[in-house]
Computed example of a mutant assay.
Amino acid sequence: MNEEAVTTGWDAIEEQMKKLYGAQEPKHYGTVIPYMLGGKDPLDGLSAYKAENPLPHWHIVTFGFSELYEKESENKEYSGYGFELTFRVARTEDEEEPPMWALNLLQNMGRYVFSSGNVFASGDYLDANGPICLGTDTQLTALAFVEDPELPSVVTPNGKVEFLQMVGITEDELEAMKTWSTSGVLGASQTNLPGYITDLSRDSLLRIPSIAETVQRGLEQEGSNTGFLFVDQLAWEPGKSRLFSKTPTVLTLGAKQAGTVGKLLRGRLLKGKDLTLASQDLRVVLEPGAETGYEAGEQEVRLRLDEATADELSRKLLPKEDRIELTAYKGCIIQVVKTHIKDQDGNVVSTIG
């Protein structure tokens, strides 16, 4: 194998890391069996550097979301998926190896992207539906993505590569990011979350009054940046006319998402913005309008809500099983059903609603 000819993408990543850490030799973890040959780990490698500022931590970078060797994709602007992930994890003074849970988590992110085709961008978030480090009592149960503050994007011979840093977040921080914005919540937390370092032992930042107040003020003034929300439990059943009666139209929503959607209605529709809910088979577009009404196709439904109806629904949508009838939507019912949270083996570990 001609190393000079095929490792240009890999070399470009290492060069960026050398600008930060000089001659420091990172702890590198390669993949024994390539993913394309049946290996379990989709990323070709992970490198962990010891960083001291602003606090001691491991700075881990992935190799594999971008094209590390020869150019294969037709997209000339970006290399592969166009990014590599980084992860800053708190480190004790006597630690000589990065925590395995962090390395495993990054490989899991690789599996998610490679299997789904969904890519990450700055401002995104992902609910892990449980501790990001399995078997611990950490409050960090989700991830946010932001541009790595010390690694600007780089243009390689295979295209552009951005460095996205993963940040472990709590359930209520995730909710705040959905209902306001990821950058807003992280920006309000910079003093208390230096370098966006993930520390499994930390408490929710929203317990700090100044941060909670900033988040609430941002939501009220700016509304929400979340215009699209993926919803596992989403169904639409149009009403049917019978001889002496008519069954109502029913929109079904899972309890886990119901409370979030209720808050998003305030941050989107009451600010004049649309909100799209999407499952694998259906899209429901909620949009502000002078009058209530809906248009339904095979895979997309558009619901118009006037201000009073949007406000009413936002107050009634809660994370619990319910049957919601709206004043202005006489023939339409919102059915909130229980959400069963399952582990990787498909076992129900908790129920919402």
Results as ranks from 00 to 15, higher is better:
221 Q>N: 12
272 G>H: 04
223 G>K: 04
320 K>Q: 14
186 L>N: 06
281 D>P: 09
140 L>S: 02
265 L>W: 03
53 N>L: 12
336 V>M: 05
248 P>A: 01
257 Q>T: 09
306 D>G: 08
152 P>T: 07
166 M>Y: 06
206 L>Y: 02
290 A>L: 12
273 K>V: 08
3 E>V: 09
154 V>T: 14
161 V>E: 01
53 N>G: 07
218 G>F: 03
277 L>P: 00
166 M>Q: 07
268 R>Y: 02
119 V>R: 14
218 G>I: 01
340 H>V: 06
335 Q>W: 02
132 I>P: 00
140 L>G: 01
105 L>C: 00
247 T>P: 06
57 H>S: 04
201 S>C: 09
231 V>M: 01
228 F>I: 10
261 V>D: 00
38 G>C: 09
161 V>G: 00
239 G>C: 05
338 K>C: 11
243 L>S: 07
150 E>H: 12
190 Q>H: 14
347 N>H: 13
214 T>N: 06
220 E>Q: 10
183 S>N: 14
319 P>L: 14
302 R>F: 03
5 A>D: 08
340 H>G: 06
3 E>H: 15
60 I>P: 01
81 Y>M: 04
234 L>H: 02
307 E>K: 11
283 R>W: 10
9 G>C: 08
136 T>E: 06
100 M>I: 13
42 P>L: 03
189 S>P: 05
237 E>A: 13
270 L>P: 06
102 A>R: 01
